[in-house]
């Protein structure tokens, strides 16, 4: 925890002395999201309490915790999707590459272009596979057919689903299996070329085989993207993540290297949870 605090403080200073030297720029690049004293209320319910987290670039950060602990709320705050719920209030700040995304002047459209999201339930549009992928590029104004074709191929290859769908790009995405639909949704997310991919329990609706495929995919994606994944499945967190944050009742109980959290947790509640005593 203290390491995180130090990092937080460092980033604050770095932000204040922004662009003063090349050295600070390199250090700053390591952190993609820095959350400081974040509180969130759904009307009267205090859902997130004083969250401090610093999430690194090009790593997989897993967020674990029992149902209702605020883990989904937290990642939905990172792309401000949480604002779709009426009556949400936040205090504190989340800096994305040095800028506070909770600030009114930070446009959600900009944020969500850079921070993509994959949802719990596969949610392709009721359109063809091709149209699903080009949706993002099209809303950002890309109309050239050749470029769109290229994006479709690259994105589907990036999500390791190209070989399965290349002969039926113009068929309805609803004809795919659940696991394929979820990989299509990941490909759709890649088509916008975000920096960060948020994943909200992406495998909870999938069978073990599809889950394995998604996990392998996450390992590949980590080379180019920062990934933050909420998961109910502790083995999954242990298998795929570099850092793990344990949430309980809206608070971060423990955050650190996945290895440390799972082998030598410093808080007894973390230990209880990962050893299956509750949750």
């Amino acid at each position: 925890m203290s390491v995180v605090m130090m990092e937080n403080k460092m980033t604050v200073q770095l932000n204040q002395e922004k662009e003063q030297s090349a050295g600070t720029a390199i250090e700053e690049k390591d952190v993609v999201f820095n959350t400081k004293e974040l509180n969130l209320w759904y009307s009267e319910t205090h859902a997130l309490k004083n969250i401090n987290l610093s999430i690194n670039e090009k790593e997989v950060t897993a967020i674990i915790g029992p149902s209702g602990c605020g883990k989904s709320t937290y990642i939905k705050t990172l792309n401000r999707m949480v604002e779709l719920v009426p009556g949400v209030r936040t205090t504190g700040e989340i800096t994305y590459k040095g800028k506070n995304i909770l600030d009114r002047s930070f446009r959600v459209e900009d944020l969500r272009t850079q921070v993509g999201m994959v949802f719990q339930k596969p949610n392709p549009f009721p359109k063809s596979i091709y149209e699903n992928i080009v949706y993002g590029p099209k809303i950002h104004g890309i109309r050239n057919k050749k470029i769109l074709d290229e994006i479709v191929e690259q994105s589907l290859k990036g999500a390791y689903i190209w070989d399965e769908v290349k002969d039926r790009l113009h068929e309805n995405a609803y004809g795919l299996s659940g696991g394929q639909q979820q990989r299509l949704c990941i490909a759709r997310c890649l088509a916008v070329q975000p920096d960060v991919i948020l994943m909200d329990e992406p495998t909870s609706a999938l069978d073990p085989k599809s889950t394995l495929k998604i996990e392998e995919l996450i390992q590949q994606l980590k080379k180019d993207y920062s990934i933050i994944i909420v998961t109910h499945n502790m083995q999954q967190a242990a298998r795929i993540s570099d850092k793990t944050a344990f949430f309980l009742n809206g608070e971060v109980i423990e955050f650190g290297d996945t290895n440390t959290i799972f082998t030598n947790p410093s808080d007894s509640r973390t230990e209880d949870y990962i050893s299956g005593r509750f949750g």
Binding site: N79, M81, E109, R112, F119, K121, N123, F125, V192
Partner: peptide, 21 residues
């Protein structure tokens, strides 16, 4: 279904783009 609109918002679409498409 709200998850369709969420998919669109999640890619940086504006409200109008989401409504229209």
């Amino acid at each position: 279904p709200s998850h369709l609109a969420e998919a669109s918002y999640g890619m940086g679409a504006t409200k109008w783009q989401t409504i229209q498409r």
